[in-house]
């Protein structure tokens, strides 16, 4: 039996540590999937103005199935669709810049980029890749409606954007986020969620449900 004792003690230590971790997780976890976090609110107001109260998060079950069936698997990088009370739509997209996890907000209005802002620079190299989070670079994407392409020289054609020097891969990441948002907008524009209906369906459902009770 003595041969098992070290293994049993290790198992006991692992179990105790796991239990403590589970307790900490329960105490600190906040579900942010359905609400606007401070960072997301700051990013989206940087595009469309107003205050955080003007925005609602479009429930994932309304748009995710549409994007998941698309043949372009990159569209699954859309993590949140946010809608302003005037009908403007913004997509939060997490892409790979220099590294995975570059979190951007792209506002699309009438099929063209209205503005781009950064939710989190993730692990882009400080002072190099993070230069792509500067509004002077992000504003270059405004008005693109077809496809953003990163070039290293002065842009010469529609949709071309000059990369930030020494941050080509982060610049490509931003362009990728813009293209994903444009693609997602294309697929979702005919769906009621994005087009005219300004009041989220839940609210109406709740209102009628409350009426019948």
């Amino acid at each position: 039996m003595t041969g098992f004792k070290p293994a049993l003690i290790l198992a006991a230590i692992t179990a105790i540590v796991s239990a403590l971790i589970i307790i900490t997780y329960d105490l600190t976890y906040k579900d942010t999937s359905g609400v606007l976090t401070d960072k997301q609110a700051a990013a989206v107001t940087a595009i469309y103005g107003g205050t955080a109260d003007d925005y609602t998060v479009v429930p994932a079950e309304k748009w995710r199935p549409v994007l998941e069936t698309a043949e372009d698997s990159e569209l699954s990088r859309v993590v949140k669709v946010i809608k302003k009370n005037d009908g403007s739509i913004a997509f939060e997209v997490v892409v790979k810049g220099y590294k995975e996890g570059y979190d951007l907000m792209v506002g699309i209005k009438d099929g063209a980029v209205y503005g781009v802002s950064v939710v989190s620079v993730g692990e882009e190299t400080p002072k190099l890749g993070t230069k792509t989070a500067d509004p002077s670079f992000l504003d270059r994407f405004k008005g693109i409606s077809d496809k953003a392409v990163i070039v290293k020289r002065e842009p010469s054609a529609e949709g071309e954007v000059q990369a930030v020097a020494s941050a080509t891969r982060s610049s490509n990441g931003v362009a990728k986020a813009v293209n994903i948002a444009l693609g997602a907008y294309d697929r979702l524009k005919d769906i009621a969620v994005i087009s005219a209906d300004l009041i989220p369906e839940e609210d109406t459902a709740l209102a009628t449900g409350g009426g019948t009770q």
């Binding site: 540590v17 971790i21 900490t24």
Partner: peptide, 13 residues
């Protein structure tokens, strides 16, 4: 295991 536990704890906090 003990070190990883503390690191996870710090990360969550």
């Amino acid at each position: 295991v003990i070190i990883a536990g503390f690191v996870t704890f710090v990360g969550m906090i």
